[in-house]
Design a protein around this nucleic acid. Structure first.
Lengths: 204, 204
DNA sequence: GTCTATACCCCGATAGAC
DNA sequence: GTCTATCGGGGTATAGAC
């Protein structure tokens, strides 16, 4: 017999003020952030979102994969907003990296180390198996990279170097969030922020 | 109706020469690497491993979580062997980073971009929900960091800096593998190798 | 230790009234 | 668009013979 798996801090039910479709997508996005794709059930979604099961299928007739793809796109935008805002708090791009890691660490800590990157778990579970979701995840990473590259263009670093740096900034943030989550510690993110700033400064 | 999800390159059935228990653990590890924890079923494991379902429960009486925890520990050792070997191919620690990324890129490419880090998907799916697995994953990351730190001690970088660098090396590799898998391209890993070498060299 | 058979549950998805 | 009810299948886990 399995031990009961404790449910950590409740995902807050989405306010009924939002449209039904919006509530479904947001709830799915949150659940997939914490549990991944496979562990997130349509029934669980409909309950958390305060929506009838049939409504989920009304808005997403072809089912779970279609809904999950949309949820990844939603998470893409949401995480981009967080990054954009954090990047804007510091004029200097190297300093801005530290600001980003601080914001991500806050989200993690405030959620008891549950709310990391909203799409990583889903992306890995579905890589090579559910192509629509994989494509949406790839587009999200591209999107976030573009935000970093844009910030780096406020320096005189060569364009080729900027594009490479944008890759490593996002990838290092991803890895550091993973490590922070698993170890329940902000330290990997703090170190990542300092190292990314140092790496960027080494190009100018 | 769901579209049929294509099954990519078959996981090769484990040779019957291994002991039953070993075959079960290895097969579980491989499947979790590609699909994560939730999508990997005990029946699927028993079939791929050429083992009776009851044998799985004979060796792992408390079920899937116990088996998955053991599989993560196995993957820990296996990935450590790969890293150790790759690190040993170059005397210079900075150059060794590039060697590691090349090896990881080969594994990914040869598996049609399926075989990335063997524990990341599982770690994220179970973070905060299945504590035994989370702990095993945390130990694996520590283990791999220790290998990198050991390599970096062949320089005269200060010990504190070495420990920080080991964090970022592993985390950047993790993020780059994720990106490589999702985008089906070795580029994120190649860039990561160059940047990690540069970062290390900036400390000496 | 491995065999066959099965209990029990929850999954995704659907039907049809309203 | 939302309701209730349900189908078919696959999940984990178990029983008991051998």
């Amino acid at each position: 017999m399995n031990a009961a798996t404790p449910r950590a801090p409740a995902v807050r039910p989405e306010a009924a003020s939002l449209g039904t479709r919006e509530r479904i997508v947001r709830t799915t996005s949150r659940l997939m952030q914490r549990q991944g794709y496979e562990a997130t059930g349509i029934k669980q979604i409909s309950q958390q979102a305060n929506v009838a099961l049939s409504s989920v299928y009304h808005f997403f007739p072809s089912g779970k994969q279609e809904l999950a793809t949309e949820a990844v796109r939603h998470a893409d935008q949401e995480f981009a907003d967080i990054m954009r805002e954090a990047l804007a708090t510091e004029a200097d791009p190297a300093e801005a990296m530290i600001a980003v890691t601080q914001v991500l660490a806050e989200y993690l800590h405030n959620s008891d180390w549950l709310d990391g990157c909203p799409i990583t778990a889903t992306a890995l579970e579905t890589a090579g198996r559910i192509l629509d979701i994989q494509r949406a995840a790839a587009e999200a990473f591209e999107h976030w990279r573009a935000l970093v590259a844009e910030k780096l263009r406020h320096t005189d670093i060569a364009e080729d170097d900027i594009l490479d740096l944008a890759h490593t900034v996002i990838n290092t943030l991803e890895g550091a969030e993973l490590a922070a989550q698993v170890s329940k510690s902000a330290e990997p993110l703090e170190i990542a922020g300092r190292h990314l700033a140092r790496l960027i400064n080494s190009y100018r």
